[in-house]
Amino acid sequence: MRRSDQDARSAIQGATREAQSAWPADEWAGHRISDFQRAYSEGTLLFPPGARLRDVLAIERGFIKLMGVREDGREMILSICGPGRMLGLSAAILEVPMPVAAVTLTRCQVRWIPIQVLRRRIERLDEFSRALLMHVSREAYEHVVRQAAMGLLSARERVEQVLGECLSLSGIAEMKSAIPLPVPLRQRELAEWVAITPEHLSRILREMEQEGLIRRYKGRVIVVAPDRLRRGLDF
């Protein structure tokens, strides 16, 4: 085994011991939510992107990588999750597809929790607590989608997605005509949002102008064809 491989495995083993000491393996068993545990070998696909989960998984031992697939078929690691993390919770609560895949990075022990069990618990909450939970779930889900977009979409696609998000803040139900961005973003701020340089953004906006998607007037971006903007990842 090469030195770099040994160092990587030692780091993972050390992190595993630390995480497991902070998060007991029987934590979820103590809540009497689910008794269904299962061990998985390294490289096991737990769910693919676009899956609508009927069970949420709680990691008790090992590490799981969240992955996305680019349009050209290349896979990218977006995040690494360890003991104590629950995967798929916000998507299951909102009844929307998972934007990423989950694959075991090491040998893992996972506890599967049926979403129906969680929903029965949620129904016992008061109205305010349920509304708060839904709000937090939407925020968490949107964060995962944005994280996936940053890793999987091209710079041009990210710009289109961000412009679409800004337009959604206008509250206009049907967007068929030219609409100025309701958010007063400077070009530098827009570039920071999509993680590119202002110069690269300028080239992309010029390209979009030539295609008739947008026009710029006194420093503001006006979306001419909002229905042609990419609005996010397709699951």
Rank of each mutant, 00 (worst) to 15 (best):
S34P: 01
F47V: 08
R70E: 14
P49L: 02
H31K: 05
R74N: 13
L53C: 14
G73N: 09
H31V: 04
G62W: 01
R52C: 11
G62F: 03
D26M: 03
Y40V: 10
V56D: 00
V69P: 11
I64A: 03
I77V: 14
I33Y: 10
F47G: 02
R74Q: 15
I59N: 06
F63V: 07
C81N: 14
A51W: 11
C81F: 01
V56Y: 08
D72E: 14
K65T: 12
K65D: 10
A58P: 07
E42V: 05
P83G: 06
Y40D: 01
I59W: 09
V56H: 02
L45Y: 09
R32V: 03
R74G: 11
D55C: 00
M67D: 08
V69S: 03
W28P: 02
W28R: 04
R74W: 06
L66C: 09
I59K: 01
S79L: 15
E75C: 08
E71Q: 11
G50A: 04
W28L: 12
R61M: 07
A58S: 06
G68H: 09
L66R: 09
Q37P: 00
P48N: 02
R52K: 11
S41Y: 06
I77Q: 05
G68W: 03
E75M: 04
D26E: 13
W28T: 10
L53Y: 12
E75Y: 08
K65L: 01
M76H: 13
P49M: 00
G73P: 12
I64E: 01
E75G: 09
H31I: 09
R32E: 11
P49R: 00
V69G: 05
M67C: 06
G82D: 08
A39K: 08
G43E: 02
V69W: 06
E27H: 10
G82V: 15
R61C: 05
K65V: 11
P49F: 00
G50I: 12
R38E: 13
G62Q: 02
R74D: 13
A51R: 06
H31G: 07
P49G: 03
D72P: 03
L66I: 12
L46S: 04
K65A: 08
Q37T: 04
R38A: 02
E75W: 11
R38S: 09
M67Y: 02
E42W: 00
A58W: 08
L46Q: 06
G50Y: 04
L57P: 02
R61Y: 07
C81Y: 07
L78P: 13
T44H: 07
R74K: 15
A58G: 04
L45W: 05
G30A: 02
G82F: 11
D55M: 02
S41H: 12
S41A: 14
L57M: 14
R54P: 03
E27L: 13
F63K: 02
P48R: 04
E71Y: 07
A51C: 11
G30L: 07
C81E: 15
L45E: 15
I80Y: 04
P49D: 05
D26P: 06
L45P: 07
R38I: 14
T44W: 05
S34I: 01
L45T: 10
F63Y: 10
I80K: 10
F47L: 08
I33Q: 01
S79H: 15
E60G: 09
R52F: 11
A51H: 11
D55T: 05
F36T: 07
